[in-house]
């Protein structure tokens, strides 16, 4: 199978590039013949510390099938090397949190080509065929997004782990299908756009360059809805577009 994957990303408006705390894998353009392909996006929680590092470990861990225990050890080993003031040390004790959505594409040995989506929290995967969205997972509608999604913690905590809710979905892909992996702000915006104007897949598929992406996100962050809120919440945004051909 042939896979083409492109990642677009932007930090929150007003924040520096190095303050971006989402993550994507692959982060650079991927275009190759492969027997299987894994990709993921993650959203580090703003209120936690070293959340960008945790999001990065989670997407790499998904792609390389590393167990959560190993990722937690790596996060802890990395952050504890640093010489930190009292408040940063206290914050480390609370751990970092992130939402994650990963996609695993496989070429079928017989006729069926399969995919598996795994998600914790409110990062989403849309499956698009012939310009129509045929599924959205794990969130189905824009009103499902809220400020307290299930998250993966960098510390082992039985109580948090019990609420982690790793959801999964299996399905079949066909020649020319596209998958979009999105972090919460752009996923919520995209679902609302689809509910109201039914043109979301067109808009996403027309993004070819970083400038296209910046223009869209900039306009939607500025656009104010009737309830006074911005059409797209000012948050780090990440969009990973994956097209697969037999």
């Amino acid at each position: 199978m042939h896979v083409n994957a492109k990642t677009f990303w932007l930090p929150k408006s007003g924040n520096a590039i190095e303050e971006y705390e989402d993550a994507a894998y692959p982060f650079e353009l991927f275009d190759a013949e492969v027997a299987e392909f894994k990709c993921a996006v993650a959203d580090g929680a703003t209120e936690t510390s070293f959340a960008g590092l945790w999001a990065q470990l989670l997407v790499e861990g998904f792609a390389e099938k590393h167990p959560l225990k190993l990722l937690r050890e790596r996060w802890n080993a990395d952050v504890r090397q640093k010489d930190l003031p009292w408040y940063a040390e206290e914050k480390l004790e609370k751990g970092a949190y992130a939402a994650l959505a990963g996609l695993h594409l496989k070429k079928g040995r017989g006729k069926k080509n399969s995919y598996l989506i795994e998600a914790t929290g409110d990062c989403c995967v849309f499956h698009v065929r012939d310009n129509e969205m045929i599924s959205s997972f794990p969130m189905l509608r824009s009103e499902e997004f809220h400020n307290a999604p299930a998250l993966i913690c960098s510390h082992e905590d039985a109580r948090v782990d019990a609420q982690m809710e790793k959801l999964s979905k299996k399905g079949e892909w066909k020649d020319g299908d596209t998958f979009f992996l999105l972090t919460d702000a752009i996923a919520c915006w995209a679902l609302k756009r689809e509910e109201e104007l039914q043109d979301m897949t067109n808009v996403l598929q027309n993004i070819e360059t970083h400038d296209d992406f910046c223009r869209l996100v900039g306009e939607e962050r500025q656009s104010i809805l009737e309830d006074g809120r911005a059409a797209m919440k000012n948050d780090d945004v990440t969009l990973l577009c994956v097209t697969v051909c037999t």
Partner: peptide, 14 residues
């Protein structure tokens, strides 16, 4: 005050 400081602490400082 301690909790507020910790809430505003990020990897790059306060």
């Amino acid at each position: 005050l301690q909790n507020l400081v910790i809430k505003c602490a990020k990897s790059d400082g306060i």
